[in-house]
């Protein structure tokens, strides 16, 4: 079998493909939702930085509500049935000093994916959320396998 394509996903972007692909990303307080169609063996990943688009600037997948909706729609566009999609979610670390906020960004990011995936009827089959460490992910869109490693705090600042 040929090697899957490799792709580095930047914050605020999303990637989905029918071709086997290894999508890598780095997360601090951001969240990555990996959606995988378990029947058709393809999937995609997003990487959002903030929970809601608040009407400022462009409605990009930098925001959780937009990123999750867009990724679900993208998979359905590729031929998925919503019932065949499962999710693996990562990130939401408390890496920023957020004492001024009642809710920190990481927590709010975690909350929005829980709500939206539940609303869409998508099961979360694996997750690693919260904590105070960043994460590196490699998601194989053909097998649905996600490899995750924790990363140092100093590296998170570069994310």
């Amino acid at each position: 079998m040929s090697e899957p394509l490799k792709y580095f996903l930047l914050p605020g972007a999303l990637k989905y493909s029918k071709q086997p692909m290894e999508i890598t990303t780095l997360l601090g307080s951001c969240i990555a939702v990996c959606l995988w169609d378990s029947k058709r063996n393809f999937g995609g990943m997003n990487h959002y930085m903030m929970p809601h688009w608040n009407g400022t600037g462009l409605a990009s997948p930098k925001f959780g509500n937009i990123a999750i909706e867009k990724l679900i729609k993208s998979l359905i566009y590729l031929g998925s049935q919503p019932g065949d999609i499962v999710a693996k979610v990562f990130g939401g670390a408390a890496v920023l000093n957020s004492s001024e906020c009642i809710f920190n960004i990481g927590e709010r990011n975690i909350h929005i994916q829980e709500e939206l995936l539940k609303q869409a009827g998508i099961n979360v089959v694996a997750k690693s959320l919260g904590g105070d460490r960043g994460r590196k992910l490699i998601f194989n869109t053909a097998t649905g396998l996600v490899k995750m490693k924790y990363v140092l705090k100093t590296q998170i600042n570069q994310i």
Binding site: R133, L145, V146, K147, M148, K149, Y150, V151, L152, Q155
Partner: peptide
Amino acid sequence: TIIFDEELF
């Protein structure tokens, strides 16, 4: 530079 153990999902 990764120092923590790998977890597989």
